[in-house]
Every structure is written in structure tokens, then in C-alpha cells.
């Protein structure tokens, strides 16, 4: 059974088809890099996978179940364009809040542990609105990983990250993949993504132009897929 299965998904915004018959699979332990130009449909697809919106046609299954099932949502960690933490709350309050919502046994302990793993333990009680951009991003990463999800859906995870946050995220993703978790990430940072990816899918105007295992050729020349299957 695929950890993430996308079967004939269409999504319309008005009459415009943002996704057209998208079919993708990611096995458990795989890291699928979704690449494509702006407007190719990467974010729309990730949002449907995460259960934020429903497809017009087709279906998405996460570990065999629908994304909106409560049990499925426990398995998904989502990191989107926004950091999804509250400026008015402290770092520890933010993580404790989400630990409680995910029903973790020791919410505050889990929050403290993730603050330490992302190097934010010294500012645990500081309000997020006073954080630097890099610190906010590391907190967002901690929030996405906090509940130990088995499927990580990451939308442009490396964009606008500082060096330290990139290092933290790459380390956490490598650990997650080593533990057999599944990662699906959309990205424009091909070099960082292809280092981690086991599979690659290129979206072009809502269609899957290419889907397959990552090859050495792609790592050597990140523009290779665009040149061959994209719009050049």
C-alpha cells in the first residue's frame, strides 16, 4: 500500500483546471520531490493531500485512508508557506497548543523537546512576534514534526530559510526518512530537494509531465527535467 496515493485528481478554480488527472504514488519511506514552474499546481496538490481542500474529481489516500479522517490527520505533518504559529503566544505555548490538539500524552514535555531539537530552547518563553525570521521558521518546522507524523507534506520548505534553519530541516528530514517516514515536498530549490529525494514528479500546467525515481543525471544537472519534459 502506498503511503500517499493520488488517483486521477482534478481541481478546478472556476472553469480553470489547476490539476488535470494527476496520478502519483509515494511508497512508505520515499521522498517525493514535486517540482514545476509557478502555477504548475504543486501547492494545490499538496493542499488536497493535506485535506485542506477537496478535489473536483479523483481521490487522495494517505496510508489507505482519506486525508480528512481524524486518524489520517494525526499521521500528516504539514509545513506550508505560512509558519502557522501564533505571534501573540510564546514558542512553548505554540508547541504545547498543537501538542494538545494532536492529543500527545505530555504536551509541554514534547514541546520542550522539540524546542531543544530546533535550537530554540533559550527563547522558549519569548513571544513569537519578537523572533527573527529564522527562529520563526525553525519553530514552524518544530510544529510540523511535533506529533511524530508518518507522512510529511512540505510546501517550498527551503524557501527563505536561513542557513541554520536549512541545516535543521535537512537533518530532521534525513532522520524522518531513515525512520521510514514518507516525505512529499514541493520545491524550486532543486539542488537541496534532489539531494534528499528518492522520487521526482514534474508538474506542468496541472499535469504530471514526468514521475519516476530520481537519477544521478538529475542530481548532476537539476535543470535536466525541465529541459526534457518541461517548458524549457
Amino acid at each position: 500500500m502506498s503511503a500517499v496515493a493520488v488517483d486521477g485528481v482534478w481541481k478546478f478554480y472556476g472553469d480553470y483546471p489547476a490539476l488535470r488527472d494527476v496520478r502519483l504514488d509515494a511508497a512508505a519511506g520515499a521522498c517525493l520531490a514535486l517540482i514545476g514552474r509557478n502555477g504548475a499546481g504543486k501547492t494545490t496538490l499538496l493542499r488536497i493531500m493535506a485535506g485542506f481542500s477537496r478535489p473536483g474529481r479523483g481521490e487522495v489516500r494517505i496510508c489507505g485512508t482519506a486525508p480528512r479522517d481524524t486518524a489520517t490527520r494525526r499521521r500528516i505533518g504539514f509545513l506550508g508557506h505560512g509558519i502557522s504559529v501564533y505571534d501573540e503566544l510564546s514558542a512553548i505555548e505554540n508547541l504545547t497548543l498543537f501538542a494538545r490538539l494532536y492529543g500527545l500524552q505530555e504536551p509541554r514535555q514534547a514541546a520542550a523537546e522539540w524546542l531543544e531539537r530546533t535550537g530554540l530552547e533559550r527563547v522558549a518563553n519569548g513571544l513569537v512576534r519578537e523572533f527573527s525570521r529564522g527562529m520563526r521558521q525553525r519553530l514552524a518546522v518544530a510544529r510540523a514534526f511535533l506529533h511524530n507524523p508518518s507522512v510529511l507534506l512540505l510546501d517550498e520548505p527551503f524557501t527563505a530559510l536561513d542557513d541554520r534553519a536549512i541545516a535543521v530541516l535537512q537533518r530532521l528530514l534525513r532522520e524522518a526518512l531513515a525512520e521510514g517516514k514518507t516525505v512529499v515536498m514541493s520545491t524550486h530549490q532543486l539542488r537541496e530537494a534532489l539531494e534528499l529525494a528518492t522520487d521526482v514528479a514534474l508538474l506542468n500546467r496541472g499535469r504530471v509531465a514526468f514521475a519516476g525515481p530520481r537519477t544521478a543525471e538529475m542530481v548532476a544537472d537539476p535543470g535536466f527535467l525541465y529541459a526534457r519534459y518541461g517548458e524549457g
Binding site: A50, G51, F52, T70, A71, R73, R74, I76, F78, G80, H81, G82, I83, S84, V85, Y86, D87, F98, L101, Y102, G103, R143
Partner: peptide, 15 residues
């Protein structure tokens, strides 16, 4: 809305 916090709430396993 700031920071897309609604996404995080919708993604959480709460009804």
C-alpha cells in the same frame, strides 16, 4: 489568517 494559522487548525485532528 496571519501566518496561515487556520491551515494548522484545519490540519489538526480535531473536529
Amino acid at each position: 489568517l496571519p501566518n496561515d494559522c487556520l491551515d494548522a487548525l484545519i490540519a489538526a485532528p480535531i473536529s
